[in-house]
């Protein structure tokens, strides 16, 4: 979605991948400590220490991380903050300032305001509930699994080499598997695409139960889910229903 938006607006996509332990240093800015130390060592040897203190905390020694980069960009960019649910609560609170006022505070330099307010997209896999404060600053869009027709369109667009019949059967099969409440990790769209590519590379133009058995691991990624599939759905029944 971020890539498409960046294409539409003909601008740059800046991506920040969230993970546990992500903090301001890695997302906003960091002082280039090593460069600062080298500068001190050089100046010590050459004997010039006059402007040193001011110089060391100038933008030259600042390592821009994605958030600062997005705010300081010369044009409106798309900022993708990916999987924000993987970050910690403290980082979420820190995002408040960025997302409400589009400004950040660097103690040594003062407040830096955005030159152009970026288009910000936050994604979440709902591994945890996001705070009300963060949600209040966003528009919320829940993307459910696509319906059969929509998934056929997606497969056609991304794997055009797959035949019409195979495409339709795959879309129906994946939809059928997703309906089973016992499947814990329901196959995502990217897994549907992987499965389609696999079947295409095997030169298949329709879904056969033996192929389903052999390529199931492209679709279901846990032993428990594969067992549920074999016991409760079965490849013969899947092919028959698609």
């Amino acid at each position: 979605m971020g890539k498409v938006l960046a294409d539409v607006f003909e601008t740059e996509l800046i991506r920040l991948q969230c993970y546990e332990g992500l903090d301001e240093n890695k997302s906003l800015y960091e002082w280039n400590y090593q460069k600062q130390l080298l500068k001190i060592q050089i100046d010590k040897k050459s004997g010039s220490t006059g402007q040193l203190e001011t110089d060391l905390f100038s933008p030259d020694y600042l390592l821009e991380r994605p958030l600062l980069k997005a705010i300081q960009a010369d044009r409106k960019v798309v900022l993708l903050i990916d999987e924000v649910d993987k970050s910690d609560d403290e980082f979420e609170a820190f995002l408040f300032e960025v997302l409400s006022d589009f400004q950040v505070s660097v103690p040594e330099l003062g407040t830096i305001r955005a030159r152009h307010i970026p288009i910000v997209i936050l994604t979440s896999n709902s591994e945890r509930e996001l705070s009300d404060g963060l949600k209040r600053r966003c528009v919320y869009l829940y993307l459910d699994f696509p319906g059969i027709e929509r998934e056929i369109e997606i497969i056609r667009a991304r794997v055009p080499e797959a035949g019409e019949r195979l495409t339709a059967e795959i879309a129906r099969a994946v939809n059928y598997i997703r309906q089973n409440p016992e499947i814990r990790k329901k196959p995502s769209i990217s897994e549907t695409l992987d499965w389609t590519r696999t079947l295409v590379s095997l030169n298949r133009d329709r879904l056969e139960s033996s192929d389903v058995d052999h390529t199931l691991n492209f679709l279901l990624k846990s032993r428990a889910d594969q067992r549920v599939f074999r016991e409760k759905i079965g490849s013969d029944s899947l092919v028959k229903n698609c």
Binding site: E20, G21, N25, D88, S126, E127, R128, E129, P181, R184
Partner: peptide, 26 residues
């Protein structure tokens, strides 16, 4: 209802493991 419960359990599991993992933070 079962699917909802599973989802809740998954949420709780990730929170427990996240909250109490050794901190990598400085």
């Amino acid at each position: 209802a079962t699917a909802l419960i599973r989802k809740m359990a998954r949420l709780l599991v990730t929170r427990i493991s996240r909250r109490f993992r050794h901190s990598k933070r400085r």
